[in-house]
Each structure stands twice: as structure tokens, then as C-alpha cells.
């Protein structure tokens, strides 16, 4: 005896999360591109686009609530749906961080940046890949991939610490760089948070697989 209705609803929910994950992942890349290219139109578009992420969260949340109410899942099914409800909140928060980065782009608009954004770009690339891998680890129940994301987060933290020190030094050396330094520091902090959310998603992947959140 299979449960076709339950399986179909789980599939819808799973596909919703994959689509939302893909959108969030591309939003991270777009946010940094708008910054590097000083593209205010793209930044404004991203801010509007964030509403779509919010809507997706609402839609998936709705599906999960209906699933809980009508299917009364237990065991693995229950853990899966509870995890998804947390993951979509994390994805929505990542969207908000991207929106904040886009708002900095608008403030940067006319200014020439005093330094090339190499580390920020690296952080953004890593964070974006981490989100993709985290969703993949969750969907494919891939413990090894989840561990990889964990490791990557340590690296992002390290880049952030170094960048933090470097920007402080720049600000101390020449006070007219201070404003940009502060803005870049905030942007880097947003990226660091995004990477943290990716590790949260991995925790959920492990929880679904093993019923407990443990990671060495």
C-alpha cells in the first residue's frame, strides 16, 4: 500500500524548495554583480525580485501546513516537512541579505571604489555555491556534501576575518576611505550570514537523514 496523495504532496513541496533555492542562489550572484558593476537598475530590480522569494516562502509554507493538517505525517515524513519549513525561512532571510547588499549598491552608485572587490567576490561565489550544495545535500540526502558546506563555512569566516582587519587598516590609514570601508564591511557581514544560513540548511539535511543534528 503506497500513499499516492501523500507522495504527490511531498513531491510538490520538494520541488518548491528546489525552485526557491535556485532563485535565492542566483540572487546572491546578482547582488554582487550589481555592486561590482554599479548597476542601479539591476539593484532596484533585485529589490523588487525579493518579493518573489517572499511569495515562494508563503506558498511552500501553505503547502506544508496543509500537508501536516491533512496527512498527519510521522517519522521521516514529519522530519522532512518540519525541516522544509525551517529551510524556506532561512532562504527567505538570505533573500533579505541580498536585498540589503543591493541597497548598498544604490548608495555606491557614483563613487569609484578605492579597492578592487576580490575577497567580496570570493565570499559571494562561495556563499552562492554553499546554498546550492546545501539544497542539493538536503534533496539528495547527501551527508558528504553537507559536510563540505560545513567546511566551506569555516573558510568564509576566515576570509571575513581577514577582510575585516584589512578594511580597518585602510580606514585608519586614510579617513576618506572610512565610509566605503564601513559599507564594504557590512556587505561582507551579509555574505558571512548567508554562508551561516547555508550551514543551517545542512543541519536540517542531517536532521532529516539521522533524526538528530550532529556534525563533527
Amino acid at each position: 500500500m503506497a500513499r499516492p496523495i501523500l507522495e504527490a504532496e511531498l513531491k510538490d513541496i520538494g520541488e518548491g524548495v528546489i525552485a526557491m533555492g535556485a532563485l535565492v542562489e542566483s540572487t546572491i550572484s546578482t547582488a554582487i554583480r550589481t555592486l561590482k558593476e554599479r548597476d542601479p537598475d539591476a539593484a532596484r530590480a533585485l529589490i523588487i525580485e525579493d518579493e518573489r522569494i517572499d511569495d515562494m516562502e508563503d506558498e511552500i509554507n501553505e503547502l506544508c501546513l496543509r500537508f501536516l493538517a491533512t496527512q498527519q505525517p510521522v517519522a521521516g515524513d514529519l522530519r522532512y516537512v518540519i525541516s522544509i519549513m525551517k529551510i524556506i525561512r532561512d532562504l527567505e532571510r538570505i533573500g533579505d541579505h541580498c536585498e540589503d547588499i543591493a541597497k548598498y549598491t544604490l548608495r555606491f552608485e557614483k563613487e569609484e571604489c578605492f579597492k578592487e572587490l576580490i575577497d567580496i567576490q570570493r565570499m559571494a561565489d562561495m556563499a552562492s555555491r554553499m546554498v546550492k550544495n546545501a539544497i542539493d545535500a538536503f534533496v539528495h540526502r547527501d551527508l558528504r556534501l553537507a559536510r563540505k558546506v560545513w567546511k566551506a563555512d569555516e573558510e568564509v569566516d576566515e576570509i571575513f576575518r581577514d577582510l575585516h582587519d584589512e578594511l580597518l587598516e585602510f580606514a585608519e590609514k586614510d579617513s576618506k576611505n572610512a565610509k566605503q570601508c564601513i559599507m564594504l564591511l557590512f556587505i561582507a557581514a551579509h555574505l558571512e550570514r548567508i554562508a551561516d544560513y547555508a550551514t543551517n540548511i545542512c543541519e536540517e539535511a542531517v536532521f532529516v537523514m539521522e533524526g538528530a543534528i550532529e556534525m563533527e
Binding site: 501523500l6 510521522v74 517519522a75 521521516g76 514529519l78 533524526g211
Partner: peptide
């Protein structure tokens, strides 16, 4: 009901 050890248990309680 949260995390059964045996696959057969899981299949039964989840209705599969």
C-alpha cells in the same frame, strides 16, 4: 514516531 530505528516500522507508521 519521530525516528524509528527499523525501516519496516517507518514504512508501517508512515502508511507505506
Amino acid at each position: 514516531f519521530a525516528n524509528p530505528a527499523n525501516t519496516k516500522t517507518e514504512e508501517y507508521i508512515t502508511g507505506r
